[in-house]
Simulated assay, not measured.
Amino acid sequence: DLINKANGLNRASYTAASLKVVDVEVEKATAVLNNPEATKEEVEAVVAALTKAMSGLEIKPNNPSVDTNTPVKPGDTTASVKTGDDSNLVSVLGAVTSLSVIAYLSRKKKK
């Protein structure tokens, strides 16, 4: 889910340098995801690194598509309000848990 979230970013909204960091971490996370022998520690490390990279994304200056100073009018259902959450911890923990279970089951299956 975290890899999909990173791949689904609106790339026009962020600086090239911060997107490059995310892209590098997505490559690493994809390699671990596709490795049936990945350890729990490897999974946790790439999840943490990708989460950190995504929270470090920098919005392009003067980007009209991400205007943080536009007031939200009452009843406006098209605007989103930034609440301070940069990542969804539940989805990160869910991804770690899922990948850990997959790694455990694949090791058990081999035995």
Rank of each mutant, 00 (worst) to 15 (best):
D1V: 06
D1I: 14
D1F: 04
D1C: 05
D1A: 14
L2S: 00
I3V: 04
N7M: 09
N7R: 11
G8V: 00
G8W: 01
L9C: 01
N10T: 09
R11F: 03
A12F: 05
S13L: 04
S13N: 14
A16D: 15
A16C: 00
A17R: 01
A17S: 10
S18G: 05
K20N: 13
K20E: 11
V21Q: 00
V21T: 08
V21N: 08
D23Q: 09
D23N: 05
V24P: 03
E25N: 02
E25R: 01
V26Y: 02
E27K: 05
E27L: 03
K28C: 01
K28V: 08
T30R: 02
V32A: 06
L33M: 08
P36S: 07
P36M: 02
E37K: 13
A38R: 13
K40D: 15
K40N: 15
K40V: 15
K40R: 15
E41R: 13
E42D: 12
E42G: 07
E42T: 05
V43M: 12
E44T: 05
A45F: 06
V46H: 03
V46W: 04
V47W: 02
V47S: 13
A48Q: 11
A48G: 07
L50H: 00
L50T: 00
T51G: 04
T51Q: 03
S55N: 11
S55F: 00
S55H: 02
S55W: 00
G56Q: 03
L57N: 13
L57H: 08
L57F: 09
E58Y: 10
E58Q: 09
E58N: 03
I59L: 05
K60E: 06
K60A: 10
P61Y: 08
P61A: 12
N62C: 02
N62L: 14
N63Q: 06
N63V: 02
N63Y: 12
P64S: 10
P64H: 04
S65C: 01
V66Y: 09
V66E: 01
V66P: 00
D67V: 01
D67A: 13
D67C: 04
T68S: 13
T68V: 12
T70A: 13
T70G: 02
T70K: 10
P71C: 11
P71V: 12
P71I: 02
P71T: 11
V72C: 07
P74V: 10
D76Y: 07
T77I: 06
T78M: 03
T78R: 04
A79S: 09
V81R: 14
K82E: 09
K82M: 09
G84D: 03
G84C: 09
D85F: 10
D85N: 14
S87V: 07
V90R: 13
V90D: 06
S91L: 07
S91T: 15
S91E: 10
V92Q: 14
V92L: 11
L93N: 08
L93F: 02
G94I: 07
A95G: 12
V96Q: 15
T97G: 11
S98H: 12
L99C: 00
S100E: 14
S100F: 01
V101Y: 12
V101R: 09
I102Q: 13
I102P: 01
I102D: 12
A103E: 11
Y104S: 15
Y104C: 02
L105G: 04
K108Y: 15
K108I: 09
K108V: 12
K109V: 07
K109S: 13
K110H: 11
K110Y: 01
K110E: 05
K111T: 05
